[in-house]
């Protein structure tokens, strides 16, 4: 596989939700991007820009209204609407084998490690469960693999037998990353994965993710509102606003020489030396005015 061949290709992704008063609001509107194998894409935008909806569509927790998601050239079957036996949850068709195959394509790390881990299971049980489900490691091999995974994310013997409540926020997020890696995914989606951690822990987790990307060649999709984080860890950046893509390109170019006024606004919103909050508020007002005039 050449480096140029994309691991993840997303085309024309759309999702809208009904509004209480009637009509619909577009949470995600015609978003397309691709991530190279071993590459790293940042999806940035403020709250409500639709970036989390994109993340949830990638892993199949939300069914797109339109658009395709392909991993290694293979389209993820979105499950026929109403094809499931029962309504409610999105139920991608294809039975257990297809479900497990999809799981090995894309995994996710959620924002809040305090609620994204099963409170009843120790770190070891959590990872064993994932391995057993996929049935690729048995007995001794599974135990060895659990050890490798814990080692890979920097969790020790004590943490292995602790339940989530006995772990710190950073340790929990490490476990969540190990759980995602347990199924050997092609693509790892990180949905604000460091936002709930304090700054020094953030840096450790980002370093860990960079190492993992280098070692395993997994492609990262980094959903975040934090531009500093995105600059640190991604090759390319996609800026979203109100469900639409406003700018995309190499991270350094987008963040250093933004073409779109919204990207400039996002950048100016980051507190720094000599920062003037009033300026940000003024820019925001101008942008809102310009959008309304469209």
């Amino acid at each position: 596989m050449t480096k140029a061949e994309p691991a993840l290709v997303v085309q024309g992704l759309c999702k809208s939700y009904p509004l209480p008063g009637g009509g619909r609001t577009a949470a995600v509107d015609d978003v397309s991007f691709s991530v190279a194998a071993g590459g790293s894409l940042g999806v940035v935008g403020e709250s409500g820009s639709g970036k989390t909806t994109v993340a949830r569509m990638l892993v199949g927790l939300v069914r797109p209204d339109a658009g395709t998601i392909a991993v290694n050239g293979r389209e993820r079957t979105p499950g026929q609407r109403g094809g499931g036996k029962l309504p409610g949850l999105s139920r991608p068709g294809g039975g257990k084998a297809a479900r497990l195959r999809r799981a090995r394509e894309i995994q996710i790390v959620f924002q809040d490690p305090y609620v994204s881990l099963d409170p009843r299971l120790t770190a070891r049980q959590c990872l064993q469960g994932a391995l057993r489900l996929h049935g690729r490691y048995e007995g001794e091999a599974a135990a060895t693999r659990v050890g490798e995974l814990l080692d890979q994310v920097g969790l020790g013997k004590r943490e292995a037998d602790a339940r989530p409540r006995g772990l710190s926020g950073g340790q929990r997020q490490r476990l969540a990353i190990a759980r995602a890696l347990a199924v050997d995914p092609q693509v790892l989606v990180l949905d604000e994965a460091v936002a709930a951690l304090d700054v020094s822990i953030q840096a450790q987790i980002l370093q860990l993710l960079a190492d993992i990307r280098r070692e395993t060649g997994v492609a990262l999709v980094f959903v975040s509102h934090d531009l500093a984080v995105v600059r640190h860890i991604t090759d390319d950046t996609l800026v979203m606003r109100r469900g639409r893509t406003v700018e995309t390109g190499p991270t350094a170019r987008v963040l250093d020489a933004p073409k779109d006024p919204y990207t400039r606004l996002l950048l100016s919103s980051v507190p720094r030396e000599g920062w003037d909050p009033a300026e940000t508020v003024r820019l925001r007002g101008e942008l809102a005015g310009a959008t309304r005039a469209d």
Partner: peptide, 9 residues
Amino acid sequence: YIDAYRVQG
């Protein structure tokens, strides 16, 4: 964590 199990397949 329930979502995580679903994503796990």
